[in-house]
Design a protein around this nucleic acid. Structure first.
Ligand SMILES: [Mn+2]
Ligand SMILES: [Mn+2]
Ligand SMILES: [Mn+2]
Ligand SMILES: [Mn+2]
Lengths: 223, 223
DNA sequence: ACATTTTTTTAGACAAGTCTAAAACTTATA
DNA sequence: TATAAGTTTTAGACTTGTCTAAAAAAATGT
């Protein structure tokens, strides 16, 4: 496993996130937006990562991860998400506060540290946003999950993860009472704008837009 | 408080350590050895730190910290030592394994993180090597301490800290049964080479050289 | 199909931090 | 006190990562 700089790791984790969030190929501009730089800087970095065989890169066509790149990204994500668990479970941060801090902590690479941290946290399988934590071999234990948008009316399930981890979004969820593990029943869908009404924990009715529903993942109840 | 790079923080903490370990002024070569670079690089960095008013620097004369530099160093040391406590107390690292990891973790600067970590660790006053941890105002709660070399024959005390934190030295102490908090009685001093025989915890006789004794600090028992 | 707009890449510059080799300065020694 | 030895600084180069401006390529619209 090659030794990577913090910048290279940030790009790699970002590219992983973008490719698994739907897109097959990721564009230079998308990466630039995600890592908060300019497209020119991204072009430079893509050359370096391609040089190191971590991404497949053809000029003007966008990038995807090589197998080695994917594996490497998973180890970065492992560190990132373990620190997220630490910050929320042990240091009592809210789930909307941990992004920036985990962004820094993820680059501390002492392998024994990561293993001990994992052990100390009780080998968590999921981070505070419901995303799976790769094990020490880079394996993901994924659950079957669909977005809230895809849940049919009358069906119920459990909220297992959120794909937007911005403070804005997470604070909104806190406010309306949506959280990882909550039971959700889809009461009604509005054809017109894709919004829907939910019943949370058999208690509270919540109305959410299609933008919100698209960023929430659900595991359907066997039913 | 200015925002510093990891490199600047490493230099600053190192200079602090060297000035408080006796020397009034620190030489370029000493710094180079301690931060593991070349003297030329140190000269460059000293100019930058002087520019930022963190050190007093006159060419060819060596450096000392300004009041602002001292304060800044104490906040870096605070982070460094809190992470050391975390690694030993929570992650069960041995006291000879934490240097390199704390070296990386110290640069994560989110202020709320440091405060929460402190709280989580129970506001420790001393790190695993017995060194005091500055509080959130940068204040050190220091104990009266003398080196083992200065303890007279027949006097007993408690070992409160070690000033060499290399793995070599700490493993040696583990082997002979010397640890922070141990009771120590000086049984005999050999004039010839400065070595001495100790009685640890009223149990075990240990013979140590003057080099070892110089790196162990003791708080004398009221007696 | 061709002109316009958008995206991506290149060219050239800059800052931080490091290095080697050489020059400048200080300290030790004969 | 002159010379040698050791230390520190400078000069110049290199790497990493970033930027702006301009050029090149791709996508879009009429
Ligand atoms: Mn990061
Ligand atoms: Mn997460
Ligand atoms: Mn450090
Ligand atoms: Mn310590």
């Amino acid at each position: 496993m090659k030794s990577l700089s913090a910048a290279e790791e940030n790009y790699l984790r970002t590219i992983y996130k973008l490719v698994t969030d739907g897109l097959e190929k990721v564009s230079t501009n998308e990466i630039a937006a995600a890592v908060n730089t300019k497209a020119a800087s991204v072009s430079d970095m893509l050359k370096k990562l391609a040089e190191k065989k971590l991404i497949d890169y053809r000029k003007y066509y966008g990038v995807s991860l090589t197998e080695e790149g994917r594996k490497t990204a998973l180890f970065i994500i492992r560190r990132y998400r373990l620190w997220e668990v630490f910050l929320v479970d042990k240091l009592k941060f809210n789930w909307d506060e941990v992004n920036a801090i985990a962004e820094e902590l993820e680059h501390v690479k002492a392998p024994l540290l990561v293993r001990r941290l994992d052990e100390y946290l009780g080998f968590p399988k999921f981070d505070p946003h419901g995303d799976p934590i790769p094990d020490e071999f880079g394996e993901l234990s994924d659950k079957p999950r669909i977005t809230l948008q895809e849940v049919p009316v009358g069906q119920s399930g459990k909220i297992v993860s959120v794909s937007d981890t911005s403070a804005n979004f997470l604070k909104y969820l806190d406010k309306v009472g949506i959280y990882i593990g909550a039971k959700v029943l889809v009461l009604e869908k509005i054809e017109y704008d894709g919004s829907q009404e939910l019943f949370i924990d058999n208690q509270k009715k919540v109305f959410v837009s299609k933008e919100v529903a698209a960023n929430i993942q659900v595991m359907l109840h066997p039913n």
